[in-house]
Each structure stands twice: as structure tokens, then as C-alpha cells.
Amino acid sequence: MRVLILCEHESHGIRLCSRSAVAFANLVAEQTRGSVECLLLGHSVAAVAQDAAAYAPVLVADHPALANPLADRYAKVISDVVKQRGCDLVVAAATTFAKDILPRAAGLLGGAMASEVIGHEFRDGQLCFRRPLFAGAVVATVALHGRPKLVTIRPSAYPAAGVRAGHGDITAVAVDEGILPKKTEFEALQSKLSNRPDVTEARIVVSGGRGIKSSEDFERLVGGLADKLHAATGSSRALVDAGITPNAFQVGQTGKVVAPELYIALGISGAVQHLAGMKNSKTIVAINSDPEAPIFEVADYGLVGDVYELVPQMIAKLDGAL
């Protein structure tokens, strides 16, 4: 299969999650004796293209009209590239970037799409995908009919691809501004200011729930422990609803899906919607004052107690002060 990876990038290079998409693409290409290419869209992205070329040959659509990821424009460019190059499969990491853009591209390309893929296999030579349903309580195996097929993959399911042998291979894609849709205009991005790691990429995530009563307490307890462990912070939906944490912090079925090496749940009861966002973490620790909290059923290690008492002690112990 001819596999195209839609890359997501930051200022300096492609995002770690896109390297997971490359890993998926490499596997499928190997299994089908096919090929892989990255597609990068943006403006003034020469340095990013260099970085992407370390993982796969790169196609770059570099144009001022593509400076911001507007779905209608991006989907148009993607679908044109897919048609011109005869791609069989398009993949991107399941982030808000791709969740916005890729289904729109699928709408232009015949609609054979599966999102949030966590595994794949061949049945009678047919490529099939595994994806979670019902907040992760169930896994479905699905087949896609039509060509091209488009998928988003969960980065936690495919370890990031390493640097390949042989660099270079950067090809410019001509962008005709005249045929791009112009019904959407970018106005602003209010980016979150955080010096902590990205919650979807961090090795350790410390998360807070209903047991945390205010933003100050969240910062002191969840933030304090996270900083001690060089971890990212997350929260349950309850804290987002209460205005204690921003929406971007929400881990769960309708927020972010994370699978770090260590997930520490502080004062989180463990609603099924939250579990959907973190239950594939390698090791799960729960601290909660309610011994009956459902979070303890999915935790590897549970400690019953008050987070207001235990977390400061834990921070102190990690300092070696006690």
C-alpha cells in the first residue's frame, strides 16, 4: 500500500505523535510491500521538513494561505495530493488537529475512514482496524471499503518511529491559492502557557479530580507533585466543569487519551468516561479518601487517604526531606 502520513508540527519539528503515525505507516508498508511518505502543510516550514525527512520522505505544501491549520483548506490540499499520488491509505495521529481535518478530507475522498485506531491486522489479505467503543469498554474490529482509506491512530498504540537510514527526499507540493476554499479565516490562537510537558507525550502524568477543591489547591498539590516528577498535569471532567482546570487538561473519553508509564490519580473517583482516557497507562496509582471509589478497580496501586494530607507528604518524601 502507498501510505501517506499527515504530519503535525511545532516550531522546531514534527510532533512526537506524528512519529507514531509514521511507525504505523512503516508497519503497514512493510506488511504490504508498499511505501510511505509524509505530508507537511504550513508556511515557512523548511526546518520542519528537514526534521520530518529524518523519518520518511517528505512532501511539503508551503504557502502563506496554509499558515494556520484551517480544515477546509488543508483538507483540499490533502485530497488533491492523495489523488495525484494514488495513495491507498492516509494516517495521522488522533489529535484535535487531525480529528478536525482528516474526516473532512475523507468527505472529499469517498468516506472510508476509521478514527482512534489502536491496532491493525490482516484478515484474508484485508487490512482491518481495531478501535475502542463505549468509552473503551468494548473494542471493535472494522474493515473499510473504498479507496483511499483514512485512519487516525492513537499514539499510545504505536511507539514513535526512530530516525531512518538515508535523509533528504523533500519534494515541494505546488499550492494553487485560487482553488483553496476561503470561507474560513483564522483570527487568533490563545495558547496555553505551561512549562510542563504535554499531557499526551509525558512519561508521567499526575491528574486531579473532584477531591481537589480549588485552582490554587490543584496547582499546589497536582502541579507540585508533577513538577517533582517532571510530569504533565491532567484532570477529570469534574474539575473542568467546576472551572478549576482548563478544558485542555481533561483526560477522558471526550478529552485527551493518555497512556504514560505512570499515571497518578489524585482524588479521582474513576467514572468510566475518565477511565477511557487513561486506562492503558502502564502503571496506575490512585489516592482517594473513598475506599469504594471505582478508580481502585483499575489502579495497580491504591492508597486510601486524603490527598490534602498525603500529597504534601509525598512531595516532601521525594525531596528526601523526611
Partner: peptide, 28 residues
């Protein structure tokens, strides 16, 4: 005309240790 065909569903079993620890020291 279906584009996405369901081949089958499976329930996802939990495979956690579920150890209750008695103290922070034990946890660490």
C-alpha cells in the same frame, strides 16, 4: 453503501494488579 463494516466486538477485560498499599512509603 457502507464504508465501514463491523467485523466483531470484544469486551475489554481489566488486567490490573489492584494492590492496596498501607502507606506512602510502601507506595514509593
Amino acid at each position: 453503501e457502507p464504508r465501514l463494516q463491523l467485523l466483531g466486538l470484544e469486551a475489554v477485560p481489566s488486567r490490573r494488579k489492584s494492590v492496596r498499599v498501607g502507606s506512602l512509603d510502601e507506595l514509593l
